[in-house]
Amino acid sequence: MDRRRFLALSAATAAALPLARAAQAAPLEYKPGLVEERLKAGETVFLDFKASWCTTCAAQERVLDALKAGNPAYEQAITFINVDWDAYGKSDLAKSLKIPRRSTLVVLKGNKELGRIVADTSKGAIQGLMDTALAAATA
């Protein structure tokens, strides 16, 4: 391959990468009633209680993003919802689920909680929770 063709292909590939990332489904932002609506529709819901200033939340987000990038089935089957801790940490949702703090991840299906992680940033734990959600979503 000549240099000109190599550079053209490299530029095209680099331009396409942001488009591929944009195609990934962005998590929904929580608003009252959203979780109930999605659960009634039969969806498996993955809640991420987080704050913009929380370093543990940021570490969890990096792991979540990497896992989603490695397995597109997660985003295809699971409904991810971000819950802003500063706005909704004392909400009826947080109270009903007994959410102790930000950096809490919870999976729900129907009227059941399938699992949760509190302040854990390990890839294995988060992947285990996501696999639980995927299994419920595809069952």
Rank of each mutant, 00 (worst) to 15 (best):
V35S: 06
Y30N: 03
I117F: 06
P27L: 10
T104L: 07
N82A: 12
D86L: 12
G115A: 08
Q76K: 15
A14S: 05
E75H: 05
M130H: 03
T79V: 15
S122G: 14
R3N: 14
A12C: 10
C57P: 02
K109A: 15
V118S: 11
I126W: 07
E75C: 11
T56M: 11
Q60V: 06
E37N: 09
Y74G: 02
T132F: 01
A22K: 13
K98R: 14
F6I: 10
A12L: 12
M1K: 01
L67D: 01
M130K: 01
L97P: 05
E61W: 07
A41S: 14
G42C: 12
L34P: 06
L105N: 11
R116I: 04
R21T: 11
F46W: 08
A125K: 02
V107C: 10
L7E: 07
P32Y: 02
A20G: 04
C57A: 14
E37P: 04
F6R: 11
A51G: 15
T121A: 10
L105G: 12
A77C: 11
Y30E: 01
I99N: 07
A87K: 15
K31N: 10
D48Q: 05
A25I: 10
I117N: 01
Q60C: 10
V35C: 11
P18N: 04
K90G: 13
A23R: 08
K40L: 13
T56E: 01
D84K: 11
R101A: 15
T44P: 06
C57R: 05
A69F: 01
L28H: 12
L39R: 08
L47D: 10
A8L: 14
A23H: 04
A135S: 11
A139E: 14
A73C: 03
V118A: 09
W53Y: 09
A26N: 10
R4I: 03
M130T: 00
M130I: 03
I78P: 03
A87N: 09
G89W: 00
T104H: 02
A51Q: 00
C57M: 06
K68V: 12
A15D: 02
F49I: 12
